[in-house]
């Protein structure tokens, strides 16, 4: 049992966090909350990849003369890290854009509550 927890706790926590993010996007009705849920979902997926790169007993992926390169078990896999740098940037830019849209919406309707917004859109 302890073995199982040790092996899979990270994945199960991340599945839980992914669902929490989706909960923020689906159930919460304030637009800023929706954006925060979006950020949580993206951060979760990024951490999922990072966990997939981890090796027991390995060091960070920076070349060290003491270890050499013959033994790949000495370094953590650098491929997911490089890809997730890109994904983090994507997450930041998407969040910034969502904030820009939120400001644009507030200028027009003076509220950020979704039912109120839909209500105001009904009569025009």
């Amino acid at each position: 049992m302890l073995e199982f927890i040790q092996d899979y706790y990270a994945f199960i926590f991340l599945a839980l966090l992914f669902t929490i993010g989706l909960y923020g996007m689906m159930v919460k009705q304030n637009l800023v909350k929706k954006a925060l849920g979006m950020a949580i979902v993206q951060a979760t997926v990024i951490m999922f990849w990072i966990v997939s790169a981890y090796k027991d007993g390995a060091g960070i992926p920076i070349f060290d003369k003491r270890y050499g390169v013959e033994n790949p078990e000495m370094y953590i896999n650098p491929l997911p890290h490089a890809m997730m740098l890109t994904a983090v940037v994507v997450a930041i830019i998407t969040f910034g854009l969502s904030l820009a849209l939120i400001i644009a919406i507030y200028r027009e309707y003076n509220t950020l509550h979704e039912p109120e917004l839909l209500d105001q859109m009904k009569d025009i």
Binding site: V32, I50, A53, I62, M84, I92, L99, I102
Partner: peptide, 28 residues
């Protein structure tokens, strides 16, 4: 987990720049 580069970006941008943007947006 050994991902120092990603952690650097996440700390600087995710906790710094995003925070500034959010505060600006909420202020407005």
């Amino acid at each position: 987990l050994g991902a120092v580069d990603v952690a650097f970006v996440e700390a600087v941008a995710g906790a710094g720049v995003i925070g500034v943007y959010s505060v600006v947006a909420i202020r407005l």
